[in-house]
Simulated assay, not measured.
Amino acid sequence: MTAERKRNRGPSAGPENRRALIAAARVVFAEDGYRAPLSRIAKRAGVGQGSLYRHFPDRKSLALAVFDENLTELELVVADQARTLDDLLGRVIEQTVEHSALLEFAMLERDDREVGGMDERFRAIVDVAVQHEQATGRLAAGVTTADVTLSVSLIAALVSRSPADERRDLALRSWRLLQTGLGSR
């Protein structure tokens, strides 16, 4: 029996492979945590480990790519003026529940400059939502971006330490409680 070799499609496969690797990382990190074998991510993406390392030289760069996509999604939410802080935080909660392993990464690498840049980008996204909500009267005037990001951090900490089947419910219950304190309507 001969093993069937995959045809090398060359550089033209690069963007597709990158997307497949990020999608696979989302699933594998969610299933096995941040320290999951990178070989498992490559296999799930249908690419060789060489391709994985060409796109992402280390685990951190792969996790940052997943975070980047998450933040891009959140930027699209706040760009839509019809969306509310609840819409944004609903999506943040979903991302937190789906990708709690990446919270482990963020904690392990919190002093890293690139991870810090993601944190700054998240605060900027929240700031847009807070300003919009205050302008429309749906958020108490004294609530700051720091208050909202602290609330998200509290929820993320709870979710990351909870059993997978309880995460969504705990996150939603926590957000409802925090809404009262933030004066969100």
Results as ranks from 00 to 15, higher is better:
M118I: 11
G14C: 02
E98A: 14
K43E: 15
V97N: 11
V148W: 02
P15V: 01
V126A: 02
V128Q: 09
R5W: 02
I125H: 00
P11Y: 06
R173H: 01
P11I: 04
V47R: 02
A65H: 10
Q179C: 11
T144I: 03
L88V: 10
M1F: 05
P57Y: 12
I22N: 10
L88W: 08
T144H: 00
T149V: 15
N70Q: 13
V78L: 00
E31F: 00
R91F: 05
R35S: 15
D119S: 12
S12T: 14
E104T: 15
Q131N: 05
D127Y: 08
Q131K: 08
L170I: 11
H132G: 11
R91E: 12
R138D: 11
Y53G: 01
A65L: 11
E166Y: 06
K6L: 11
L178K: 06
L177F: 13
E69F: 04
S151Y: 10
G50K: 01
N17F: 06
S39C: 11
E94S: 08
L89S: 08
G90L: 07
W175D: 09
E69P: 00
S160W: 14
E104Q: 13
L103V: 09
T96R: 12
G142I: 09
L52R: 00
A65D: 13
A82I: 01
V66I: 10
R161M: 13
L182M: 02
R26H: 11
G90Y: 13
R91H: 09
V27N: 15
L158I: 12
D169I: 14
V66T: 09
F56I: 03
R7G: 06
I93P: 13
T144C: 03
V97L: 12
D147Y: 02
A146V: 10
L170V: 00
S153P: 04
A171G: 05
V66K: 07
T145L: 08
L172R: 12
S174E: 07
R113N: 00
M1P: 15
